[in-house]
């Protein structure tokens, strides 16, 4: 009976995958996560901005690999060993898949709607609908981000264009 109740909670939108990157705790709705895999070295692509790490082949599909610093430049400072890192395979709105590199995966936690507070302004990206807000978990206060929204608004050419012009 307890298991059934637990599953019901997970089916709702209150289950979050928690992960650390650059010393910060983040959370993403579990429904947006396809899978989590160990870090694989991506192939670098030319004319792409910092934070866009390249592409990798996942079961025959060539997908883009980004670091969270692509959206949150302030995270650059702390770098974790690649052996420790993981990749969150996230679904974009348009059906595209993207791999997001994070330092460590902390697990899945539940948060009730009333426990989520408005977004913490750590990046302009969060102000554009990509931030769910913040919530307190046993691991600490996590910034809840909407990876699906971030993936959908992504255009890897935007920063490179200015680089080329320069």
């Amino acid at each position: 009976m307890m298991v059934a109740r637990h599953q019901t909670h997970f089916e709702e939108k209150n289950a979050f995958l928690l992960y650390h990157d650059g010393g910060h705790l983040f959370g993403t709705p579990l429904s947006q996560v396809k899978e989590v895999i160990p870090f694989r070295q991506p192939r670098k692509l030319p004319n792409t901005p910092d934070g866009y790490l390249g592409v990798m082949s996942l079961r025959g599909e060539v997908i883009g690999v980004v670091a969270l610093s692509y959206w949150f430049p302030s995270l650059k400072a702390e770098q974790q060993s690649v052996l420790m890192q993981s990749m969150i395979i996230a679904h974009g709105i348009s059906g595209e898949t993207l791999a997001v590199v994070v330092d460590t995966i902390d697990g899945v936690a539940l948060a009730e709607s009333n426990e989520v507070v408005p977004p913490v302004s750590i990046s302009p990206a969060l102000a554009h609908g990509a931030g769910h807000g913040a919530a307190k978990f046993a691991q600490g206060v996590a910034t809840l981000i909407d990876l699906r929204q971030l993936c959908a608004s992504m255009d890897a050419s935007l920063q490179s264009k200015s680089a080329l012009a320069g």
Binding site: G64, E96, M154, L164
Partner: peptide
């Protein structure tokens, strides 16, 4: 290429 890479100058596609 994935949609977000379509406008990156100098890229045509990928081969495995």
């Amino acid at each position: 290429l994935q949609k977000h890479l379509e406008r990156v100058p100098g890229l045509c596609g990928t081969v495995v």
